[in-house]
Design a protein around this nucleic acid. Structure first.
Lengths: 230, 230
DNA sequence: GCAAAGCAAGAGCACTGCTCTCTATTTGAG
DNA sequence: CTCAAATAGAGAGCAGTGCTCTTGCTTTGC
């Protein structure tokens, strides 16, 4: 069962392709991702690249899955370093890690949370699981915190509840819909904050106050009912 | 000073180009925007299109500016139909209008608030003004509401304050930084909500609870300190 | 040892943005 | 009214893209 030299070479080339693709993504953006350019850089003729990657769309799917996991790893690592019962700090660490990863990998962030690549739609069965990792971290945190919905919060439909259960039959199922709604709002807000900073609406403006991300995270934590981590 | 037939024809062709470009944007996405396809549809040879549009990037800039104004018009119209002193309702109307426009023009929304078109960066002098219209509506609303910052809110740097004054020396200059921070947070959240719904993260999940956009808007309004519009 | 599988090369198709030259038409000034 | 200048369009062409097909060469596994 030892891998043959040929298999090793194949894996190596495959890794090279992904490495170059990630770099291209950073310099040229998702639409500038060119199979021919990758082949050229590898010293291959353009058609040979199709021995490794069946199509450009497939390469994009690979990059998306890889990025989702890199993103999930980074956020999970940061969040898991906090004391489990310090819910405010866990949220703060999560938010900071999200932004840190996005700033370090802007092209990948655009791939995951920006507008979809035109003409291409990622096959859900290969991306939703990895893509749900970070949202699930937040939902787990909310379940751990065992928050009570405020009395005057209007209840949400059970449809969303079921959708989340289908996604992961574990902890989130026990979340009251109101808490869940606030959690998803906080996550959307976080994505919006990071995207506006990265994609440069307002030029400096948002960049400025995103430097004060901690304040915004505190406000969102308060919105979710989490205790201040100070 | 009467426009010659030639000028009229030129304007007509120009309008046709933009119309077709918008349609292409909707069906193919921003990267699928093809000058050659537009020329073909107009019955022109591919090179003739450059009599009207100097380059593909320039066409994108035109589309962006047009979209920003269409967006600003829609939101402004909705917001201005509210009683001026009903601040909660003005926010609700603004948020609903933002989502309504985005759902009606998803490709344009992606152009404005999605990831930037790769290899292209919009010249700020031609887009930031139109792009600031909707954020300014919210800032004006906050200034009108004359909100007091909560005592325990940490102050933000004056740099952001100055940036906003430079942008529009009018009302926003009088906003306390804390109120401004909460307003920008609410706007970012709104963008995040709409983007997550449109770009299909979570598939149905977010779509579900974005149907309950009013609840989320109420939470954000509460976060800004606006009164409930009920 | 040899057939089978796998890798790479090369040519080629259809498409893109964009530039160049050339022609027919319209315009505006004398 | 005339005639040069400005303009719209046509056509060819360059460099790039994704992708397919056929053709060799090399390694693999029986």
């Amino acid at each position: 069962m030892a891998p043959t030299p040929r298999q090793l070479a194949h894996e190596q080339t495959m890794a090279d392709i992904l490495r170059i693709a990630h770099r291209q993504l950073g310099t040229e953006g998702s639409a500038g991702l060119s199979l021919r350019a990758i082949a050229r850089e590898l010293g291959l003729v353009s058609s040979a690249i199709y021995r490794y990657v069946p199509s450009r769309d497939e390469l994009l799917t690979l990059l998306i899955a890889e990025s989702y996991n890199s993103f999930g790893d980074a956020v999970q690592a940061a969040e898991s370093r906090c004391k489990r019962d310090d819910f405010g700090r866990r949220w703060l660490a999560l938010g900071r890690a999200v932004r840190r990863w996005a700033v370090a990998n802007p092209a990948e962030w655009a791939l995951l949370y920006g507008s979809p690549v035109p003409g291409y739609h990622a096959p859900p069965e290969r991306t939703t699981e990895a893509g749900s990792r970070v949202p699930l971290l937040l939902l787990t945190l909310l379940a751990d915190a065992d928050l009570k919905p405020s009395a005057d919060d209007p209840p949400m439909t059970a449809a969303l509840h079921r959708e989340l259960e289908r996604l992961r039959p574990g902890l989130p199922g026990e979340l009251p819909p109101e808490v869940l709604g606030r959690g998803l709002l906080a996550f959307s807000s976080l994505c919006g904050l990071v995207s506006l900073e990265l994609f440069g609406q307002f030029t400096n403006t948002v960049t400025q106050f995103a430097g004060h991300l901690d304040h915004q995270l505190a406000r969102l934590g308060e919105l979710m009912g989490l205790p201040e981590p100070y």
